Amino acid sequence: MVKALNCPNCAATFDPTENVCEYCGSYIITSKAKQITFDSDEYKLANKKIFFHEIEMNTNEFPIRSGVANMYYSATKSDGGRLLLTNQRLIFCAHAFNINPNLYWEIYLDEVDQVKLGLNLFITQRIHVFDEEENETTFIVYGGKHWLNELDHALNRIK
């Protein structure tokens, strides 16, 4: 377990179990949980910067759900990392153990045409995200039905 990290906003050392920098007050989401659903009201009231693994959230952007995920390309190729759903976008960040550790993918929710639940593999499920140009991105996640439910709610809120 990491005992201390640096705040992406002010560079001060902070305790990752606290999720808040004691110097600047920024929220820093570093959860290692397989899946977590956030209480967005906690973030709406604070009016502070919010970071997800060093990625700064936009103005009025709040985390909804985060979890371990693989970006799936084929039966023999995928990249592991974390997936974050906010009220504005879906973000994937690869972890450092990949061949491509700097992989970053995002799509704004207003560019999403549809999301579908795919193949169920025991405890994981595939989620298919289609953009307006019919490009498909597939993720393997824990609790695919929960992800799909949260994605549907977020998409319905922006339309």
Rank of each mutant, 00 (worst) to 15 (best):
I64W: 09
I99F: 10
C10T: 11
R82H: 04
F97H: 14
E133A: 15
T17R: 12
N156D: 03
V20L: 04
L85E: 04
M1P: 11
N60G: 07
R82P: 01
A4H: 12
V129T: 04
I29P: 09
S40D: 10
I140Y: 10
V2G: 09
F122T: 15
F97I: 05
R89A: 01
A33G: 06
E132A: 13
S31V: 01
G81T: 06
S26D: 06
F122G: 12
F51H: 13
L5H: 14
I140L: 10
N70R: 10
T30P: 08
M1S: 13
Q35G: 07
E42S: 13
S66M: 05
I28G: 11
I91E: 06
V115W: 02
H128K: 15
N87Y: 04
Y72Q: 07
N19H: 09
A96H: 11
L117M: 13
H95Y: 03
A11Y: 10
V141I: 03
I99P: 02
L119T: 05
N47D: 07
R89D: 00
V129S: 07
T37A: 12
T30W: 11
K145I: 02
L151P: 04
F14V: 00
D39A: 14
E134T: 01
I123F: 05
K159F: 02
D110R: 15
F92P: 01
W105P: 00
L83V: 01
N120F: 12
Q35S: 10
N60E: 08
E106R: 14
P16K: 15
F130Y: 09
V20F: 02
K48C: 02
V20G: 03
N98S: 00
I36E: 14
Q35D: 06
I99Q: 10
D113S: 11
S66R: 13
I64D: 05
L83P: 04
G118E: 14
Q125G: 13
T17W: 04
N149S: 13
K159W: 03
P16E: 15
T124M: 09
V129Q: 06
V141T: 03
V112G: 06
W147T: 07
L90I: 03
Y104D: 03
L151N: 06
T37R: 15
H153Q: 02
T86D: 11
Q88N: 11
L151M: 07
K3Q: 14
N6S: 10
I91G: 07
M1G: 15
V2P: 08
V129I: 09
S78K: 12
